[in-house]
Design a protein around this nucleic acid. Structure first.
Length: 110
DNA sequence: CGGATGGCTTTAC
DNA sequence: CGTAAAGCCATCC
């Protein structure tokens, strides 16, 4: 236990009708840069019945493939998240974690 | 301990 | 807007 818990804890904190990206979740969980590992934990979440579907890729795109993507989309739509052409309107549904202030965001390095 | 993997992210062309 | 390359990082073997 440890890593998954951190990630999942953040994921379950996302309110209904809201979504977040792997990177955001990773950062909120206290593991910036480990967006990939978030996905990994998400896999576990799927088995635990956790709201993994509230996590999307950057830009609001579903990175999943096959039926998983469809499943996620359906779940999100059920929560009120609107999709436009395979993409979520992040600007409207993206969840701001309480930790961040004033929309501070620094992409990578520069 | 080292190498490979992965439901990512971002910059660059 | 699509593809390519590099970077990050925890787990698996």
């Amino acid at each position: 236990m440890g890593y998954f818990e951190d990630i999942l804890r953040v994921v379950v904190k996302i309110p209904c009708g809201k979504v977040a990206t792997y990177g955001e979740v990773a950062r909120a969980a206290g593991h910036p840069g480990s967006a990939r590992q978030v996905a990994w934990a998400l896999r576990d979440a799927d088995a635990k019945g956790m709201p993994w579907h509230r996590v999307l890729g950057s830009g609001g795109y579903i990175l999943l493939g096959g039926t998983a993507a469809l499943r996620q989309r359906k779940l999100l739509e059920s929560e009120g998240v609107h999709f436009s052409g395979g993409r979520v309107e992040m600007e409207r549904f993206k969840f701001r974690f309480p930790k961040r202030r004033g929309g501070r965001r620094v992409p990578f390095a520069r």
